[in-house]
Amino acid sequence: MDTVVDMAKAIKIQAKDVNVFYGEKQALNNVSIDIEDRSVTAFIGPSGCGKSTFLRCFNRMNDVIPSCRVEGSIMMGDVDVNSLQTDPVLLRARIGMVFQKPNPFPKTIFENVAYGPRIHGLAQSKTELDDMVEDSLKKAGLWGEVADRLADQATGLSGGQQQRLCIARAIAVGPDVLLMDEPCSALDPIATSVIEELISELQQRFTILIVTHSMQQAARVSQKTAYFHLGTLVEYGDTKDVFTLPKNEQTEAYISGKIG
């Protein structure tokens, strides 16, 4: 497989020969990829190509699906993600995730953000917890909008706000990787652009993997792009190269809108 790796940046995660099966059906076929630290990597491809399945391999979210089986190795530093010794709970504390549809818990805004620090026992005192919530909300660019109504129900926020709340909730645990599964697909264009700006800012601190169905979005926010088709990684490289000079015919067909 051809992969172009920009050696200028350090590697955060390395996936090797990842295969995923749903029962008898194979959803991912020998995918290998190196993810750069503190950058945005976009996974694109037609629906059903396995990009979301692949994303969920990084924090073992596929464990939740009983029929799902993952093979191959994913290394993050010296952590073997797929190893039985690796506790998925700890793994998910290190790798935050934002989902397709905003899914705030039916609690107050404060409680949503405080959820992670609480379960992991990260805050020693109430003031420390308050600080963590404020800090996370600020990093997610939501503080200004909700500072005076932290005790309101989170479900009362707009869709875009809810999604940023979910980002704040993920950040509050203090991960160094963020997975985003089509985070803007349920949002309107204005909310989308706010999130996209946020992603660019977050890239300073986090390694971000984003699945998106929008090529424009991938082009706008990511440094690296991986193109998936029918469960295989077809092309992976710098975003500008993938979009301007795709090496693969399929990639070109997809980018130019011939398949979708």
Binding site: M1, T3, V5, A10, I11, K12, I13, Q14, K16, S32, D34, D37, M75, M76, G77, D78, D87, L90, A93, R94, H120, G121, L122, G174, D176
Partner: peptide, 24 residues
């Protein structure tokens, strides 16, 4: 991709946080 690549490790503060979580 046969040659292993040196991977970056999280910084000390993050590492400490993860250890704290692991303890609980």
């Amino acid at each position: 991709m046969n040659n292993p690549i040196e991977m970056i490790q999280p910084d000390a503060e993050t590492q400490a946080r993860f250890e704290k979580i692991a303890q609980g």
